[in-house]
Amino acid sequence: MPFEAYKLYQEYEPDKYKTSTQKKAEGVLKEADEMKRAQGKETISGIEFQEARELLGEDLIGPEEIEKTWGVRPEDVPEIPFSREELERAKEMGQMLVLRVEKTEDGKPMSLEVMIDIIQKRWNKEGKGKLLYTDDEYKNWKERTGADFSQKAPRAGWTLVSRELLPQSTSKNYAQQTELMVAYLKDTVFKDMEIPEEYEEAFQEWEQAKQTDKNIQELLRNPDNPKYDWQQAAKELAELKITQLTRQSIQETIYDLALYYDKNGERLLPNVYTWSNSRSPEGELVDLGEFDAEGVDAGRWAPSRRVDDLGVLLSRRL
């Protein structure tokens, strides 16, 4: 019995020809899927999601994980805004894909308070340690960071988050970290790819700021002894588009760390800190990290500080 030549490649053309039976079966599956969607039992079944799941494995944290950790099944799961190529590259760079939701099951904001309420009791039972590091309930944590515990929630949507600090991002001030982040995005993340419009704008804004903003210029040119208005600089740096697009807020850091640990049993940032885009009431920029059994620690620094265990995680959104 000879070998049919088309068998060499037909596996790569699964959709080219289909028998009537296959078409019918697909139609039935599609209908069933739509019915599930309508009933709200299943909210995502797109091929992209399945592909992303196959590609990223444990580094995809989607609706199922959210339901398991936060007890909320998102009503409308947004489409993954990243291409397959971007996800492949993200995987190579050690990033995870996280779906963030901003509301709880009963419609409250997914605030720090709520996250602690939902998770801490269960973690205590399971012997998984604490979420936030504090010796006096959450008072110290609140005082140190000035974080909004009751209202502010993560920004909803799919985000690519690096599991480790950006290479060479420690011992750098906030502006130097931003400069490094821009270079990393241009040279590595978007290398040979089309740069999304919002990132193009963010890069332009950063270039503009470097040329016109005295505080930023001082932080970049004279990092050992910058003469600058630190509060003004912190505000400007935190509000930059690039900061908002690529750094986590306090709430987002906690959300991501909790989910990843809950799913994979691994605590990220075990002995380093990431500098967030959130500011304390006095104006410093908040950093979070050293996540161990006693919980995530947090601190705050003026933007000129350079600390050897303080770097930045890339948290890329679109």
């Binding site: 019995m1 000879p2 070998f3 049919e4 030549a5 088309y6 060499l8 490649y9």
Partner: peptide, 16 residues
Amino acid sequence: LGAVLADRNGNIEWDE
């Protein structure tokens, strides 16, 4: 390459 290896009926003479 499959077309090069095949005969005019689309078969390659590999036994099973």
